[in-house]
């Protein structure tokens, strides 16, 4: 009898890329639901816009590069889109999201050779492009106690029409992190700044719950062995440590560690963005160094830099160091003496 020949191994586990990506998307759910709960329709609209743009861009690029369209099924574009939508300001105009997605998929990913070849995190590329080009829109975060209907949100995002009796300024604000920075520059004591309705128990009002949602999803990913502990732990620990040092020295001028962890995009980054395998370091020690770098740079930009949240820059900067980190953190091979 004749048989088909192939080479070992003849067993394979069933966790392929689409499965992994689907699990990561699933893990985004708790945070997204919390987002929706506190801020209404905007996030769902943002995710929809981002996903449609990303899929179109991905399909176009695949066609242009003569790649099989089945790559679309890998969900990686959708994941990039969702991360962007979750990172961009709540009330960002529709074109800003489209633009960010376009840059993320086209420049951040396909110009480098597509999935697996991009040295930078595509979502962060898209984010930084719009942050640098349109800083005025990057402060359009919806206030937590404003209730906008679906129609109102759509009008606002697509036509720039604010609901009657409201101005854009009355319903949006900068992020809590940003307002701390502004307040401090006006010599206000920290306790006074954080007493505004923008702030919740530990982080920003509402935002702390969203962050908790991402934390929950991230822990689930850890449990599912999709990510390892190194990157989230390295990032959160470094950020907390930096915050703790300065907070202990001068609590009136520096926010506490819990605030740093539960506001802005910290949790989203620690579990979902910095862990993007393609652009992150891959060795165990490398991952810790890489993540600590992100935590450190984030804290520096957040505290003294000119941008509202430093995470995107921190991630991109550390992406650049990955080849070097990986090279110097190769694990000890079995049977090789140190």
């Amino acid at each position: 009898m004749q048989f088909n020949k192939s080479t070992s191994p003849y067993l394979h586990n069933t966790r392929d890329i689409p499965t992994v990506m689907r699990l990561v998307l699933l893990a985004l759910l708790p945070g997204t639901i919390a987002y929706y709960y506190f801020f209404g329709w905007a996030i769902l609209i943002n995710i929809t816009i981002a996903c449609i743009t990303a899929v179109i861009c991905e399909a176009l690029m695949l066609a242009l590069r003569n790649r099989p369209l089945l790559f679309l099924k890998d969900y990686s574009a959708i994941l990039t889109a969702c991360l962007l939508a979750l990172a961009l300001p709540t009330l960002a105009p529709w074109w800003l999201i489209v633009l960010a997605c376009f840059f993320a998929i086209v420049a951040g990913k396909h110009l480098y050779g597509g999935l697996g070849y991009n040295p930078f995190n595509p979502a962060m590329i898209g984010y930084v492009v719009v942050m640098v080009s349109f800083p005025q829109y990057m402060t359009q975060w919806l206030l937590p106690d404003i209730d906008l209907s679906l129609i109102q949100t759509l009008q606002l995002q697509f036509q720039g029409i604010t609901p009657v009796s409201m101005t854009l300024d009355s319903i949006t604000s900068a992020t809590p992190i940003d307002s701390i920075k502004t307040g401090l520059s006006l010599d206000l004591p920290l306790s006074q700044i954080t007493s505004s309705s923008l702030f919740g128990a530990v982080g920003g009002a509402g935002w702390e719950w969203i962050a908790s949602g991402f934390l929950l999803g991230g822990v689930w990913l850890l449990y599912k062995d999709i990510i390892t502990w190194h990157i989230p732990a390295g990032l959160l620990a470094t950020l907390a440590l930096m915050a703790a040092i300065f907070y202990i020295v001068s609590p009136e001028h520096y926010s506490n560690p819990a605030f740093q962890l539960f506001s802005g995009g910290t949790m989203l980054t620690a579990f979902f963005i910095a862990t993007d395998p393609v652009s992150a370091s891959t060795t165990p020690r490398g991952k810790i160094i890489y993540a600590s770098g992100i935590g450190l740079i984030t804290y520096i930009i957040r505290t003294w830099g000119g941008y509202p949240d430093g995470i995107a820059f921190a991630v991109l900067l550390m992406n650049m160091t990955v080849p070097t980190i990986d090279y110097y953190t190769r694990p000890r091979v079995f049977g090789v003496k140190r």
Binding site: G114, T228, T282, T283
Partner: peptide, 18 residues
């Protein structure tokens, strides 16, 4: 598919290779 550098292979390697 292309390698996404996920490191799953590295975590599984009994010789601790990359």
């Amino acid at each position: 598919m292309p390698c996404i550098r996920c490191g799953a292979c590295m975590d599984a390697c009994p010789v601790n290779l990359l």
